[in-house]
């Protein structure tokens, strides 16, 4: 079970990122939860400076842009 968190202050790109990830998760039938985190204090805790950022099981795997679908698939395959 993967725990996926999308960090972002509520901009459209962050919302879209979360939607895209949820879509890929569903498509591949991966066991994972997808949630969004908008609290700046928590985002700071991950040391992320540009959003949207993606955290999987407490590891920051991506920041600063909307990830490509292929990237998401690669993270989920791990």
């Amino acid at each position: 079970m993967k725990n996926i968190i999308v960090l972002g202050s509520g901009c459209t790109k962050c919302v879209k990122t979360a939607e895209l990830i949820a879509e890929v998760v569903k498509e591949h039938g991966v066991a994972a939860t997808v949630s969004k985190e908008t609290n700046p204090e928590v985002i700071m805790g991950y040391g992320v400076m540009s959003t949207p950022a993606v955290v999987i099981d407490e590891q920051v795997v991506h920041s600063g842009s909307m990830p490509q679908k292929a990237q998401i698939e690669a993270w989920l395959a791990k």
Binding site: L7, G8, S9, G10, C11, K13, C14, P40, I43, M44, G47, V48, M49, S50, T51, A53, G64
Partner: peptide, 16 residues
């Protein structure tokens, strides 16, 4: 390159 939607995390990154 900088999107204003990133201003909060950037601000905190600099500050911390």
């Amino acid at each position: 390159p900088f999107c204003s939607c990133s201003s909060i995390p950037a601000f905190l990154g600099f500050t911390s």
